[in-house]
Write a protein that binds this DNA or RNA. Structure first.
Ligand code: SF4
Ligand code: SF4
Lengths: 156, 156
DNA sequence: GTTATATACGACAAAAAAGATCGTATATGA
DNA sequence: TCATATACGATCTTTTTTGTCGTATATAAC
């Protein structure tokens, strides 16, 4: 349920990688591909979109590459997914971009609940910044393996 | 992005339909199919799962059908999707049920962010009751939504 | 008891979406 | 000029989703 799209994963991989570099240092897609094993063409496409949207800045030529061009704290997870996958649409009848018609639009009794869910989910994604995702608040040593356990522990 | 699974839609359609009936009154899948145009077999499968999980009660025989058997205010959206689609797993490496191996598990740099996202999304879905979705006027989430893990003893 | 109608469920097939790849063009530093 | 980078349309493959079929079982109505 709710499996993340690969494009979003590639974006996060690239952003996290670039975040660790000194400002101004470039990252080529080849570097990402070799380091993390992501498919070159697919990742390249993602970076192109992010550059086009202003999240990254691209440098062409022999030693070109990408660098972060926007404060990730001001980039919500919603913004990211919208750039790559289009607007959040919990049901096909809510998707205005692609005219995905639903055959039971006339008799459907759950458009109201579905609209509610869509709104709530949207609020959730908009309130979650990419920076927050990439850098959890808890200070911790990067190399520790059992970080999964640590991070799952949430303060309530 | 984030399109709802049809199974969940069929469940919501059925639940909303049954909710409007007087207590004790049954609803057959045929009735749902004819009223809303949902495919019979698919919807039938969904209702069977919900009955098996205790959300619905089934009555066999000539004039059989289903009825709601559990307070929907105590059924979170997370519970519903878990019954029908398995646990929320934002990335395939987080899915423990199906052994969906990821080829870049060893080199991946975003397991931490992905885990964070998964946790946050889980919290969101757990805090959203089906009753609240179906009937927006009564916003009564805080009541008893979070601690449902006792009831959802899934043993297969 | 027979029958009509309902759920129960495994297995298969069609459809849709996601994901990866190919081919070619363009920019630019060395 | 050449090697290497991004840019991007088009296409193919794989995976996931969705719907259908066939058969078994339960039971109320007759
Ligand atoms: S079933 Fe109802 S809610 Fe789902 S897509 Fe069709 S119309 Fe929209
Ligand atoms: S890419 Fe990283 S996060 Fe995504 S599934 Fe593979 S290992 Fe998990």
């Amino acid at each position: 349920m709710n499996k993340l799209n690969r494009k979003v994963e590639y974006a996060l991989i690239g952003l996290k990688h670039m975040r660790a570099k000194t400002p101004g240092e470039l990252t080529s897609v080849k570097e990402l591909s070799q380091t993390y094993g992501v498919p070159f063409e697919a990742a390249s496409r993602v970076m192109q979109v992010l550059a086009q949207k202003g999240v990254l800045r691209s440098e062409q030529g022999a030693h070109g590459g990408y660098m972060i061009a926007r404060d990730l704290a001001r980039l919500s997870f919603h913004d990211l997914t919208e750039m790559l996958l289009g607007p959040v649409a919990v049901a096909r009848c809510l998707d205005e971009e692609k005219d995905a018609g639903c055959e039971m639009r006339g008799t459907c009794n759950i458009i109201s609940p579905v609209t509610t869910l869509n709104r709530r989910l949207l609020e959730f994604y908009k309130g979650l910044s990419v920076a927050e995702l990439l850098e959890p608040r808890a200070r911790q040593t990067p190399q520790a393996a059992p970080t999964l356990e640590q991070e799952v522990r949430t303060e309530l």
